[in-house]
Nucleic acid binder design. Sequence first.
DNA 1: CGCGCGGTTGATAACGGTCAAGACCCGTGG
DNA 2: CCACGGGTCTTGACCGTTATCAACCGCGCG
Lengths: 258, 258
Amino acid sequence: MRTFQLDRPQVFERFRAQSIANSCINCISKSTCLNSNLDIHHREKLTAEYTHKFKVKVGDAIFHNGDPIQSIYNISKGFLKLEFSLSNGQHQVTRFASNGDLVGLDGIADGRHHLDAYALTDGVICSVNYGRLQSLIEKDPIIQKSIERAISNELNRAQEHLFSLGSHSVEEKLAYFILELLQKEGRFKSEHNSLHLPMNRGDLKSYLGITVESLSRALTKLEGANFFRVKNREINDIDFQKLIEFLDITIEESGQAY
Amino acid sequence: MRTFQLDRPQVFERFRAQSIANSCINCISKSTCLNSNLDIHHREKLTAEYTHKFKVKVGDAIFHNGDPIQSIYNISKGFLKLEFSLSNGQHQVTRFASNGDLVGLDGIADGRHHLDAYALTDGVICSVNYGRLQSLIEKDPIIQKSIERAISNELNRAQEHLFSLGSHSVEEKLAYFILELLQKEGRFKSEHNSLHLPMNRGDLKSYLGITVESLSRALTKLEGANFFRVKNREINDIDFQKLIEFLDITIEESGQAY
DNA sequence: CGCGCGGTTGATAACGGTCAAGACCCGTGG
DNA sequence: CCACGGGTCTTGACCGTTATCAACCGCGCG
């Protein structure tokens, strides 16, 4: 289970000023980045010559389906959505990504991205040039392992999403989503039983494969059953235990990330 | 797009007799295996000391959720289903795998499998010891790339599945599935407009996230609209063009596999 | 022959989608 | 500071699709 915290923005800002200067050593995201299990020597290799930090604003596209894969992206700050889209306009959000998540691995298969990536909020992204990363991988098995684990991890996340979309009611899908977000922010056992949703209802209904109206009704219904309180994008007083009972599932303590 | 054919079983049997003797050089699956883009020298490395061929029977489990990852599996013959399952009995088929598919990559993330794998038919599986594969990867960047591409490919397949489950009617999900199978068997432009479904209705409804009854009705409905003819597990006279018009999609010629 | 299993068909009900209206949020400008 | 306006979100009424429950069919097998 990841344990970083998102609730002290001012501290974040101080680190940001350092990390934007392209050092992996001091980067706030390092505990969840590619180099999470690298020692300090390895981390230095990932620094300036391989990485490039840049800011994004709400709505910015990071890459599109079909684009050749230039880089792998690590999110330092902010939120992205990843969409599967067809030329006829149909599209679906398949993933939300945030602090420490690696994005763009879908392009490894054939050298082209298969998804669209957009910024949901202003943020900072660390890009790692893919060509250079490849040569680095060849020289360093630890980095190679990190990459493989990251993709495999993403695959497993997709499987869980698949499961939650198949044969579940709207309320159940929503409950799975809330738990997923809680887990991502490492808040299972913490005193923080609230969430701020980084996405609007439109993106969330797409992710869940339902309509906005159903989503809205599901929110009020679960609120009425005292699973949580909803106020716009704020979810408060989340009753973690009730949610997992509702879904009839058990959560292991050691939800180990990559 | 993959171009191997599945419709001459007696020829397959002759090859099988050779490949069971553990040579990647003569293996019938090699064009779609890990070593698809290896030259003959590299292929030799993958032979006997790394791989082990074995037969499976209908219903056999290959691995379970939680098992430590011993091997990566390449399917030489037959069909597998991969299931996401919870301890409360809920489960969903998330993938069907056949000739040339790599299975078990979900376990790379944390060294344990996250899915259950079962044989849908009798078959032959080629296992590659994961520990040895890892050391091989370190020495040989081409094999490492093959692995990464295979996982990334699987990730993209999962995204498409996700898309087809979200916001689509039962008939649409079924149509997507038929096209997916056709594509897998490389029959888009071939004279073969028929399919044999390797799975029963129960597994298929699980994959599509619907009920058996809805599946049955969707089959008869699409049959009534002359998309194809259904006879038990045989799908005949498939009207490829009508299917893609129904889904309002376009298919590129070059559906390149890994 | 008759049982059991997988699959289909039918009747009914509920869940979720659709359409329409209204409430709320928030930025802009008077 | 408040009024306005546009977009987002919620609520309500209605209807269609799909799940549910139940019966039945066909086939393989003891």
